[in-house]
């Protein structure tokens, strides 16, 4: 008997969500297959890559990142350069400095940065808050307001602050809403339910179902992706059909593998190589489990991921 090729057909598909405007706009989702399973059906818009920049600058970044932005003096110049990184689809601005337990930069100062970035590039924009839920509840609605007309993705609305963030980004100012939950399919679904009950269109939501560096609790991340996709496609669960975006660089560049000096770990070889490997491997592991977009920062990572996505298209 010859090989009988059986396809895994789903009647459901992942929502298509567009971010940005004009010819640089990108669409996420749209596929009716498991990640990269081109042989079963349509990959939709394929996986996308976001390049992270931060209000904290690049002082603590790898040499390759610094070299890439050499000559940039302002965050605006960096944003423009980020948007030109070969393989990049969109720019991600992280407002880390807002964290009350860190620099605690005032909202006005951060909003000025958002404006500067928006003026510097017409690439699609994703803005991440500072992770502190109270501060983000204050900051992100203002971000949504100043980015009116840009169709940006505002990260993140969480269980604790989804009303403030969701209402501003998803209702008042016509942006896309990033729904962030803690590595659990039920929490992811619940957040989408309450956001849609608030009035945010399901088609305006992109999920962040949790992220970690490989080796650091990543087992739960994988299983959450797998289960979310099984429910979205296999059971046609409308409240889990949002595309998934996963911040990778913010997890991978702080772990020991990417930070320990060669002096401390002579056998391990150059730090930067390890950092890139950690970022690449974590990003690929996310993409092959379910992320429609990953957020990374090293130019070599971006080049490799974009090549891989092309090879598998």
């Amino acid at each position: 008997m010859p090989f009988n090729r059986k396809l895994q057909k789903f009647s459901a598909s992942i929502n298509e969500v567009e971010i940005g405007t004009g010819d640089k706009a990108v669409k996420l989702g749209g596929q009716n297959v498991l990640p990269f399973y081109f042989f079963d059906g349509s990959l939709g818009n394929g996986c996308k890559i976001g390049v992270e920049i931060s209000d904290l600058g690049i002082e603590n970044d790898a040499e390759g990142v610094k070299a890439y932005y050499a000559g940039c003096n302002t965050i605006g110049e960096m944003a423009k350069k980020a948007s030109e990184m070969p393989g990049a689809d969109f720019v991600v601005l992280r407002l880390e400095g807002g964290d009350p337990n860190g620099l605690n930069k005032p909202v006005d100062e951060l909003i000025a940065i958002v404006k500067e970035v928006a003026d510097a590039t017409d690439a699609p924009l994703v803005v991440e808050g500072c992770k502190n839920v109270e501060k983000d509840a204050e900051l992100l609605p203002k971000v949504a307001e100043v980015l009116q007309g840009r169709n940006a993705l505002i990260m993140s609305a969480k269980e604790e602050n989804y009303k403030a963030v969701g209402a501003a980004a998803g209702l008042a100012y016509g942006q896309k809403v990033g729904a962030e939950s803690a590595v659990d399919i039920n929490l992811a679904k619940q957040l989408n339910v309450v956001l849609t009950q608030l009035g945010v269109a399901a088609q305006s939501i992109v999920m962040n179902t949790g992220s970690a560096a490989v080796g650091y609790g990543f087992d739960y991340t994988i299983s959450t992706f797998d289960r979310v996709r099984a429910a979205a496609l296999g059971q046609d669960d409308k409240m889990l059909q949002m595309p998934i975006i996963t911040p990778v660089s913010s997890e991978t560049w702080t772990v020991k593998e990417s930070t320990a000096s060669e002096e401390d770990e002579p056998a391990w070889g150059p730090v930067e190589e390890r950092g890139v490997s950690m970022e690449v491997q974590t990003a690929v592991a996310c993409l092959v489990s379910g992320s429609d977009a990953v957020i990374v920062k090293h130019p070599q990572t971006v080049a490799t991921l974009s090549q891989l996505i092309k090879e598998l298209a």
Partner: peptide, 10 residues
């Protein structure tokens, strides 16, 4: 090690 450290963790 650059390849192994993330890979074996994964």
């Amino acid at each position: 090690y650059a390849t192994a450290l993330p890979l074996y963790g994964l």
